[in-house]
Amino acid sequence: MITNLFYFLSFVAVLSALMVVFSRNPVYSVLYLIITFFAIAGHYVLMQAEFLAVVHVIVYAGAIMVLFLYVIMLLNLNRESEPHKSNILKFAAAICSGLLLVVLVGSLRGTELLKHSEAGEVSSTMGGVKNLGKVLFTDFLFPFEIASVLLLAAMVGVVMLAKAEKKTNL
């Protein structure tokens, strides 16, 4: 049952990820990417990481994809204005992505599966909200507080970039 579910989710994730690349309309690509994110959230659930799954759906499938849609709309992707890619550019892109694939496969082949004893005691509630909160607010307190500074920096940055000063309008 678990294995079948894993294969089903992997199939959905890979298929919709391919559709992201192959669909001509960028808005369809975004919609396929949402399906991919849901399938990956399913994988998180299978790996006992419930909180991560929920966050993945709320933040990525919900909020980040809205941003993606906005970016696509901001870019003015008309069929006429779309620049024609030359053959040498396509060739270079194929070589680059092929090299990336070789690096990824090579590095993943070198890793060994984590032994059960090395991974420590894996309980069914380890990825739950309660355990995660305990670890976050005791052992990883400093990164948590730094995250607030990161969010603050992001806020200041986006206001600086996107908000036109009134002086320029006058």
């Binding site: 980040i64 969010l151 992001a154 986006v158 996107a162």
Partner: peptide
């Protein structure tokens, strides 16, 4: 876009 990205930032705050 500005409103959307500010929403995402506060969304992450609530997740914590």
């Amino acid at each position: 876009f500005l409103v959307a990205i500010l929403f995402v930032l506060f969304d992450i705050e609530v997740i914590f």
